[in-house]
Simulated assay, not measured.
Amino acid sequence: MAESNGNGGAQVVTPPTGAPALNAMVQFTKDFSFENPNAPRSLGPQDKPPNISIQVNVNAKQLAETDFEVNIMLEGSAGQGAETLFKFELDYAGIFRLQNIPAENMHPIVMIECPRLLFPFARQIIAEAVRGGGFPPLYIDPIDFAALYQTRMAEVAQAGGTPS
């Protein structure tokens, strides 16, 4: 059964009793910055393709027993040093409700599946901002959140800690 508040809010699909469910309740931009520090000079023809650098971070915090806020932080730049074409920082988040999911599966779902659902929207925000800055849109390649998670868990295990 689908429930809606009638004003364009999140539509929540109620799973059959006891069935696992992952629902995106809301998605939003928490913080966003785009810089074009050398415009209009940077908008002219370039001698060589720009050096593009992108960093990705995923953070999560539990809001209630079944609700989690998950953030994707994307930072990037094109160019080098004084020849920077553009820079961006995006903190894109969502509130997710996880129901009837075994405890041992909660952390991987929050840190892999939730960012995977958010990423296409964050990618589009970046592409449109770069295009609006006078450059061809930057379409970030898909991110393997499972590989990022496994790498992070290996780092935590090597340091002797436990995942948060």
Rank of each mutant, 00 (worst) to 15 (best):
N38I: 00
F119W: 07
L98D: 03
M73I: 14
P142F: 06
N71T: 15
E104W: 05
A159D: 12
P137C: 14
G161A: 06
G9A: 05
G79T: 08
K61W: 00
Y139N: 10
F135W: 02
R116K: 13
A154E: 14
E155N: 12
N59F: 07
P49S: 03
R123M: 03
M25N: 11
S42Q: 12
A60G: 04
L117C: 08
E75Q: 15
E65V: 11
P142I: 11
K30H: 05
P45C: 00
F32A: 06
I101F: 02
Q150T: 09
A103T: 12
G79H: 06
A146L: 15
R97C: 12
C114R: 06
M25W: 13
G161S: 01
Y92C: 03
I112N: 14
A10W: 01
L85G: 13
P15W: 07
N71K: 11
A39F: 12
S164F: 09
F119S: 08
P136Y: 05
P15L: 08
A157H: 07
V156Y: 05
G18P: 10
P120R: 00
D47R: 06
P137G: 11
V110P: 09
E83N: 15
L85V: 04
F135P: 01
P142S: 11
E89M: 10
F88E: 04
F88S: 03
I143R: 10
G8H: 03
G81W: 00
F135T: 02
D31Q: 05
L63T: 03
P40M: 11
Q80I: 11
G6T: 09
N59W: 05
D141P: 09
Y149A: 04
F34G: 02
G161Q: 01
Q124V: 04
R123N: 01
L148D: 03
P45M: 14
F96S: 08
E155F: 06
T14F: 15
Y92N: 03
T29A: 08
E104G: 00
V110S: 08
P102N: 14
E75I: 03
L90M: 04
I143F: 09
I72Q: 04
F68A: 00
S4K: 12
E89F: 06
N38S: 08
C114L: 05
G9E: 10
G44A: 09
L118N: 07
P20K: 11
A21K: 08
P50L: 04
I54Y: 00
M25A: 04
A157V: 09
A60L: 05
E104K: 15
V56S: 00
P16R: 15
A24V: 15
F121K: 08
R152T: 13
E83R: 14
I95S: 05
A64H: 09
A127P: 03
D67A: 05
F68E: 02
D47S: 07
E69K: 04
F121H: 12
I54T: 09
A157W: 11
A82T: 08
Q46H: 03
Y139I: 13
A146C: 10
V70F: 10
F32R: 02
